[in-house]
Design a protein around this nucleic acid. Sequence first.
RNA 1: GGGCGAUUAGCUCAGUUGGUAGAGCAGUUCGUUUACACCGAAAAGGUCGGGGGUUCAAGUCCCUCAUCGCCCACCA
Length: 726
Amino acid sequence: MHEKFEKPYDPQETESRIYQMWEESGLFNPEKSIEAGYTDENAESYTIVLPPPNVTGVLHMGHASMLAIEDLLIRYQRMQGKRTLWIPGTDSASIATQSVVEKKVQKEEKKNRHDLGREVFLERIADFVEDSKNTIISQVKAMGSSLDWSRYAFTMDETRTSAVNEAFIRMYNAGLITRGHRSVNWDPKGQTTISDDEVEYKEETTKFYYLKYGPFTIGTARPETKFGDKYVVMHPDDERYKEYEHGQQLEVEWINGKITATIIKDEAANPEFGSGVMTITPWHSAIDFDIAKKHDLEYEQIIDFYGKLLPVTGEEFEGMKIGEAREKIIEKLESKGLVEKIDENYVHNIAIGDRTKATIEPQVMEQWFIDVNKKITLPESHITGIKDGQEVTLKELMIAAVEGGDVDIIPNRFNKIYFHWVNNLRPWCISRQIWYGHRIPMWYKDGEEKAQIESPGDGWEQDPDTLDTWFSSGLWTLSTLGWPNKEEDLKIYHPTSVLETGHDIIFFWVARMILMTTFLTGEVPFKKVFLHGMVRDAKGAKMSKSKGNGIDPLDLISEYGADASRFALLTGAAPGNDIPLDVQQVRGYKKFTNKIWNVARFVLTHTDGVDLSKRPDFSEDDEKDLEELNAMVNEVTEHLDTYRFDLAADRAYHYLWHTFADIIIEKSKEELEGDRRSTVQWKLYYILITVLKTLHPFMPFVTEEIWQSLDTKESPYLFVAKWPKA
RNA sequence: GGGCGAUUAGCUCAGUUGGUAGAGCAGUUCGUUUACACCGAAAAGGUCGGGGGUUCAAGUCCCUCAUCGCCCACCA
């Protein structure tokens, strides 16, 4: 008898040992698996790329849920005989990592990044990344993830960097990447631009001022920007102001004395709002900038990149911080009798940088953008509805990929959200003023510019900026497969089968991957997108570090085991729904792992020497038991094929406990004493094997550990065994 | 302001094409200590958020209201 079964199942003792065994087998690598004869060479491929966690981060519940789902899919498909590849990787998380290292250097060496210089600072970051990457990797392994580590990718490694450069240059040559002066989101704390999607909005109550501007009344919550307001805008059809003509000039008393204001008639002014008149600050407002562009108006910068007022505001205000200036300006305007009314409780949204939480200041800057509306020719298309050589825009490609069904988003309701986002997409600002990231492969000399990786020669200077981290992330399905070089891998594994990720990054990532990949290859990056929800605590609140309500997945694993933790996450994982996680549940599933353990113990102690190759004659009752088993396998299979992991898990759970253990095994106790002994032995053993296989993708460790104790088995490892056929 | 989701047993959730409700956990009672006390059995628990409609029949379809949550949107 196997002594280990005399004690309750101990995940602590088992899991790392089993994982090591798996890794040493090398069979997470599909080529090795083919070599060893577990996978058919011509088998259909099944690929998932792991959404790369932050290389310097630690595993959180969101990761745990993602890993549980993806490993479930991968193990299931591997057992189905597919040529299965799951690619691991980590993300450099440029801004986040840079600021962590910057703080560290500041604390330890009392220096900032400029003191060190770009090159030295980047070395510090590289060292830091190297030191900390093993933490996240070992935590990913602790979940039981059957990733092909031989293909480990890091967003900043050589292969990925060359993919980024290649993509940039191709897009530049196609005229999709252009440089221009536009209104961008400036993060004064991070000292960089950020894209529209990286801006969050927070409700804030502030004062709202009604100011006299010549004969008009204008409203503003930001008087500090009003120095530059030389244009007064009203709707062309507004009867109240029909005496004024477009372009008419009038002199008005303003903050620092008289200025000349120009009347602009534009539909952007809403007659229903306030007085129907507004002044504009093109440099510090994207909408105002659009109006200024449309009418070819002048604009100037009022606030600098640190949030202080520039000399143009006059000696009195120069150098003041926004908050202070606001008060002072209002005092001054009040003394001049130009303040009509102050609304104390004005609720509006302020823009916040999602990383730094700093208030975003729109600025006009020269940056690199991806033009999503420019027509380009797609030489070769595998996208439904787009022909080879057709002229399309990136927007059209992104719509076609989903509309034509080449990319299927689960759950379906996210299609609408996706289309809405794509249709309203503005040029994507991709340049960042931070050091850690992929440096833009653009070179300048005497007003000339060249897009290439190496310096074109003496006197050429490379663009100092780096690329938005989502630019490289957008290439992830391609770059992890070695694009543009490894043609063989790309042919076999691309497009990938499923992209499994949180619905919170559908725009950041999912959409960007579709954009990049369709342009660069004429293929979609993945056939299906499975969106999981946010992991929530027992009260339904979003888990986050700042709220302190997070459950550390590592604590869960060490207390209840990875199997139980995975199972709890999977039973709640209905597509798109948030995943509630209650520790009580995890405890319950730990009991379940022990139940499996004891079922195995019972079966193994009573079936010594059973020979599976000779199928005995069954009674009607036996046949019914096997039919029930088949029905369970069928249902689990179907649920897995339709991404209903919650139902699949539930079904398998219930079968093992309440059918196999409670009914079949209980019934067998008498039979094992009588003349039906060998028949029943065969049945028990067969059911055990089938159940182990069925449960393996959900609970890989305990099932594999039991498998290792079987005397008769079709393969040395359960994870490469064949999925049961009903 | 626009859009989307949720509302079912004390708690967390299932309920796929409409046929008068299910699971886990918690709780109650009893039993079992030779697979498993990380056990078994039984009972209990819901006018399926409110209201209206379609239908022989609605948790399931339609309308409406309410509450909660999420996403998008720079009315200055």
